[in-house]
C-alpha cells in the first residue's frame, strides 16, 4: 500500500482552487500522462494514466468516482482500474480539502493507493517514490493552473473521446464550449453544467449507437 499525505500551498483564493480541483478536466490537466475518458450514468467517469516505473511505461485505465461537498470545500476521489496487460490492478482513495491560508489556500490531500498483481514485484518500494514524485509534480501544476485565469473553455472542456469532431481527437484543452454553458457564477453550477454537457453528448451518441 502506498500512502499519500500531502499539503499544497497555493497562492490563490480558496474559491479559485476549489474551482480547479473539483473539475475533472482541470485536475487531469495537472497530472502528467493523464487523460479523461467517457462519463457514465452513475456519475463516474473513465480515466487513463501512463506511469513510468524506471524506464518502463505502464498505462493504467480506471473508473473514477468523485464526491464533492462544495460548502465545506471537501471532496473524495475513488478510482479502481487495471493496466493494459491486465496483470496489475489498483484501487485508490483520496480525500482533499481546500482551506484559506493567509493570502492564499492550503490543500490537504490524504489517500492510499493499493497495487496488486505482477507489477508489484517489479517496482518494489519504488512505487511509493514514483507516487510521491507524481504528487509533487501535481502540486506544482496545480499552483500554476490556479494562477491562470478561469475561463469558459476550462470550465466546459470536453473530455478526450467525447468531442463532436468526427474522429474524436479533441484533447482536454479543446475549447469546445457547448451552447448554454456560459461561465457560471458558482462552482456548483459550473460542475452541473459540465456534467450536463457530457450527458447531452453521450445521449446523442448512444442514440446513434456509436461508441468512442
Amino acid at each position: 500500500m502506498i500512502s499519500i499525505t500531502e499539503t499544497i500551498d497555493v497562492p490563490s483564493p480558496p474559491e479559485r482552487v476549489w474551482e480547479v480541483i473539483s473539475s475533472p478536466p482541470d485536475v487531469v490537466s495537472c497530472i502528467a500522462g493523464a487523460e479523461l475518458g467517457e462519463a457514465h450514468g452513475d456519475g463516474s467517469f473513465d480515466g487513463a494514466l501512463v506511469v513510468k516505473f524506471g524506464a518502463v511505461r505502464v498505462r493504467f485505465r480506471a473508473r473514477v468516482h468523485l464526491e464533492l461537498d462544495e460548502t465545506a470545500l471537501r471532496g473524495m476521489l475513488t478510482a479502481r482500474g487495471k493496466d493494459g496487460q491486465a496483470a496489475t490492478r489498483f484501487t485508490a482513495e483520496a480525500t482533499f480539502h481546500v482551506a484559506e491560508d493567509g493570502n492564499g489556500s492550503r490543500v490537504a490531500m490524504n489517500g492510499e493507493v493499493q497495487l496488486t498483481g505482477k507489477l508489484t514485484s517489479l517496482i518494489e518500494a519504488g512505487a511509493g517514490v514514483v507516487v510521491s514524485r507524481m504528487t509533487k509534480d501535481f502540486a506544482a501544476r496545480l499552483v500554476e493552473r490556479c494562477a491562470a485565469p478561469a475561463g469558459p473553455e476550462a470550465a466546459a472542456a470536453v473530455p478526450a473521446g467525447l468531442s463532436t469532431a468526427p474522429k474524436a481527437t479533441a484533447t482536454k484543452t479543446a475549447p469546445a464550449a457547448p451552447a448554454g454553458t456560459a461561465t457560471p457564477a458558482k462552482p456548483a453550477a459550473r460542475i452541473r453544467a459540465w456534467w450536463a454537457a457530457l450527458w447531452s453528448r453521450l445521449a446523442e451518441r448512444s442514440s446513434q449507437g456509436g461508441r468512442a
Binding site: 524506471g54 517489479l122 519504488g126
Partner: peptide, 10 residues
Amino acid sequence: YRRLWYGEDV
C-alpha cells in the same frame, strides 16, 4: 536497485 527501490529512470 535504483529502479526497484527508488523508481529511478536509469
